[in-house]
Amino acid sequence: MTRSAELLPENVDSAVDLAGIPLRNPVLTASGTFGYGAEFSPFLDLTRIGGFVAKSLTLEPRFGNPPPRIAEAPSALLNAISLENVGVEAFVREKLPALPEGVTIIASIFETSIEGYGEVAKRLTGVPRVAGLEVNASCPHVEAGGIEFGQSPSVLAELVRTVRRSTDVPLLVKLSPNVTSISEMAKVCEAEGADGISLINAVQALEVDVETRRPVLANRLGGLSGPAIRPIALRMVWQAAQAVSIPICGIGGIASAEDAVKFLLCGATAVQVGTSNYLNPAVAGEIADGIVAYAARHGFAKVAELTGALLDPVGPPQS
């Protein structure tokens, strides 16, 4: 399908539907990189973006890891923050009311047990401002010896099943990239009733200081994010899009509208901007505008038509 006629940006419909969550445009911001939203109001009109995913919540407030928690890596950030968050009660009572009307909010949940995830999901169900839930499956599963929930198909299946039973709000499952087959994990989520999937979370990584001969992070291992992981994330989104028919939210190293469009073309319905928010707290708004400009330039009357519009002369993709 080639398109020729250019359109004016104001004639492009930017709205998308992500797993039953109506978004004004396909640009969300990623959990853990956007705080609880209000921190960005000096820099960005929050109604300019599709919405945001709040920092992952546990049942009780939690502290994170000792410092150093972050380090720079080539075109990337390495972090080991762990579970630090205000807890679900404070989120509902203090953080949500601080946000202006018209901002689409997706709450993210994590816990160290499957039952814990179910409890947090229940607590957030029926809360008026919460448009959807995202299950962060990149959390160490204590019972399973610390491997991530999202690293075992059977554990992931049980997790999604439990959360699905606990809530009727639109449910996204955020996948860990630290797996052999992302397609298999995507299928598990679809089979257990997830409305959509988000990928990827940070890539497990290690960095060392040769002068001190120590790992740079106190936690030793951390999650790599930022531009360095973008092609890995794009590959995984492309593979997951072949495997499932539920919508996909693409995440990983997005720094520009061009980056975001790549994810849409590879099958994502929406995207999340993460680490780039730290470098430029207004970047998500600029990306939203840039996607519309791209659609106009290429003659797409609806941004939603960009999803899966990759031209692939080689034929059906190999998994």
């Binding site: 990189t33 921190e39 960005f40 972050i70 923050i81 928010n277 730290y278 707290p281």
Partner: peptide, 12 residues
């Protein structure tokens, strides 16, 4: 060490 400087990364 800081990544954001305005309270959202929790890195500092």
């Amino acid at each position: 060490h800081m990544a954001c400087g305005f309270g959202v990364c929790l890195g500092c």
